[in-house]
């Protein structure tokens, strides 16, 4: 079982085999299987080339790399958010989530997104009350029973560590909260739908250090229940929150391994250069 493979570059194959041995030892099963995926926004110019990886259950996987390396693109492939751009599509390869090919013809992206939640870079609660923000996912799924809604809203807010702060003003607008609270509200909104996987696209880049710390603590707690994939620009953040780290460069997956290994003894020269700050 190959965890990482890049056929175009012999160096990477070597790196891959190294990871391979480790992967075989690790216990958790993989929930996302990326198999030789290439992706283009306009059908021609590939922004991801031949990426293969496995993302393990109940772990935090961090994607790092300089701007434009394709890490966010890959993340958005996992819940098919790229479908919103008309010409964007996989040009090669397959992505399987929980054993199902998510780009198969009969797949409904709506169903997929209920299973793969997403938290965005800029916190974006709806201009509705705090309660309605969290209940939104349930309402569109057709849940109308007040008791179920109340219960889920409370447990999701508790889960996101926001309950104590907002329990007295559930009916006030979500936009009245501070930036960090708004982002935790967005996380609560996402987990209310009970997804298997949560994708986070630089969730702390618009927040101050204190709020960032709170979100990072939250991520560490959430991984007990969810598989988390996080894109981050901050290498420190990756070391703090993630179990495994993938380094992307110019559309290629250069290296993927346990976080401690990537940051202490990376197998690839490019990885080392990036984490030591030679480019970025």
């Amino acid at each position: 079982m190959k965890v990482l493979m890049n056929e175009t570059d012999p160096n990477q194959t070597e790196a891959g085999s190294q990871v391979n041995s480790e992967a075989n030892n690790a216990g958790p099963r993989s929930v996302i299987d990326v198999e030789q995926v290439s992706f283009a926004y306009d059908g021609k110019k590939e922004v991801l080339r031949d990426v293969s990886m496995k993302i393990r259950e109940r772990q935090v996987t961090a994607f790092i790399g300089p701007s434009g390396c394709g890490k966010t693109t890959l993340l958005r492939c996992f819940n098919r958010m790229n479908d919103l751009i008309p010409t964007a599509a996989l040009t090669k390869g397959r992505i399987r989530i929980l054993e199902s090919d998510i780009y198969a013809r009969e797949v409904d992206p709506i169903e997929l997104r209920k299973c793969v939640g997403m938290v965005f870079q800029k916190y974006n609660p709806f201009p509705k009350s705090i309660y309605e923000n969290v209940a939104y996912g349930l309402r569109i799924a057709g849940v109308q029973k007040k008791s179920v809604l109340d219960e889920t809203v409370e447990s999701s807010l508790r889960h996101a560590g926001l309950w104590e702060e907002v329990k007295d003003r559930l009916d006030s607008s979500g936009l009245g909260l501070s930036g960090g609270q708004q982002q935790r509200l967005c996380i609560a909104r996402t987990i209310a739908v009970k997804p298997e996987i949560i994708l986070m696209d630089e969730p702390c880049s618009a927040l101050d250090p204190i709020s960032t710390t709170r979100i990072e603590e939250l991520i560490t707690q959430l991984k007990k229940d969810f598989t988390i994939v996080i894109v981050t620009h901050s290498m420190q953040q990756a070391t703090r929150v993630s179990d495994r780290t993938a380094f992307f460069y110019l559309g290629n997956l250069i290296e993927m391994d346990d976080t401690t290994k990537i940051f202490t003894s990376p197998a690839e020269r490019q990885t080392e250069d990036y984490i030591s700050g030679k480019f970025g």
């Binding site: 709506i110 997403m118 939104y136 569109i140 967005c186 909104r189």
Partner: peptide, 10 residues
């Protein structure tokens, strides 16, 4: 707003 609504399966 649109994007996060879609991401929630709307």
């Amino acid at each position: 707003f649109t994007e996060s609504s879609f991401a929630l399966g709307a």
